[in-house]
Nucleic acid binder design. Structure first.
Lengths: 222, 222
DNA sequence: TTATTTTGTTAGTATCGTCTAACTTATTAC
DNA sequence: GTAATAAGTTAGACGATACTAACAAAATAA
């Protein structure tokens, strides 16, 4: 059996390794706000359990089993977020901390029921893909809005990472997933973009915001 | 702050003391399947925190604060059970273990939302009253079916205690809350009762079953 | 390339929540 | 009313999850 705490380490490691395939003790330490020696000994424990590849002074990796387990926790997290938004009426900026707790509930039937009631959704309210019941996750081919160029018309597909403040900001600008964004202008000095979407014309977005918005180049159906 | 574990002790103590106002270390130990010395030291801790009245070799009591806290946990438990049955389609025999976990979630807005979506229910799916947001709980004046006499017509109001097996049995006999039960016969030898309700005529219920069914004498609206 | 800084590791400590063994107090049975 | 039993308590241990202090290795800068 795997503890609540261990689950949190696995999940963070999953997220950190999803980019380069590995992560450092320091990364995890900062992410969880837990001191390095604690992380270090936990990594040894998870290695003992066959979930993590640990070698002294080397970056950490997940084993296949560890990755699958982590994906299943993330599945529970994202299904919960979707449920909270779609069925309970929460805003997309309110659901993260509740889902952080519910993701540890041990009751497969509970999450299966959510999945069913939601009609087997593929993404969470922030556009992140929901792993399937085997821990497999669909890879998107989205790009950062900040990597697009003037004249592009793209579809807003996901917010990543999605902090509460950013989500509130997006809501205040009526920026929601699925919208077509037309890039009107790019300010070379600070990287800010001027875009049009929905009923909004020439809204200015800072480069920091644009970095966190994922879009698809070919207007996709949602 | 109060831990998940401490919450469980409080809740059990609340239930045990609801009858006589006090409970013993041994009661709690059996209820939680945790050894007496462990319970003993936990009781001292909860006493330190002002939630329990502890005196050596004396029965335990809750302080007002402890009782309120416990009631609020029970509120979360019962709201959750009601939500699982009413909004997610679970059977009344499936919800206890899921609610046992969800009751520890720290997110007031989550439970407020449930309450709202359910239309501020007064009882859980087994007929037990849901404490209000201040920890106050309505006292019912139900009696055990086993204390009624032949000829009585009563309304089935609650199952208490409600084990999974009992709930499954009741479901298999189409016995659900709100039904009018007519007591046809009482077997003096073993205390079993023959009752009629809904479309069922002369169903036999063992005294053990009758002990766990609470009814109101005056046919109440639900 | 050496010195400095950052990262990782080891060792030792603390708290929480559990246990067993041994002892004390209270209750029950005769 | 004493002996036997049950309940409660104390003491000591252990695993999980955190910490700090001190040291070692790796990465970076001079």
């Amino acid at each position: 059996m795997i503890s609540h705490t261990e689950e949190n380490y696995l999940k963070v490691l999953y997220n950190l390794t999803s980019l380069k395939g590995e992560a450092t003790v320091n990364d995890i330490s900062k992410q969880l706000d837990i001191k390095m020696p604690t992380v270090n000994s936990m990594m040894k424990r998870l290695a003992e359990k066959g979930l993590v590849v640990y070698e002294s002074y080397k970056p950490l990796k997940l084993t296949d089993e560890g990755r699958k387990l982590a994906a299943l926790i993330i599945r529970k997290h994202r299904l919960t977020e979707m449920y909270l938004v779609e069925k309970m009426g929460f805003g997309w900026e309110q659901v993260h901390s509740i889902a952080e707790q519910i993701e540890h509930i041990q009751a497969p039937e509970f999450f299966e029921k959510m999945d069913e009631l939601l009609g087997f959704p593929k993404v969470d309210p922030h556009g992140s893909p929901i792993p399937d019941a085997n821990g497999n996750i669909a890879s998107d081919n989205y790009v950062k809005l900040s990597d697009c160029k003037v004249g592009d018309t793209v579809t807003f597909m996901a917010v990543q990472p999605s902090s509460e403040d950013l989500l509130k900001f997006l809501t205040s600008r009526d920026l929601s997933l699925g919208l077509e964004l037309k890039i009107k202008q790019l300010e070379p000095f600070d990287g800010s973009m001027t875009i049009s979407y929905g009923k909004k014309e020439n809204e200015m977005l800072s480069s920091k915001v644009c970095d966190n918005l994922l879009v698809s180049k070919k207007s996709k159906k949602k």
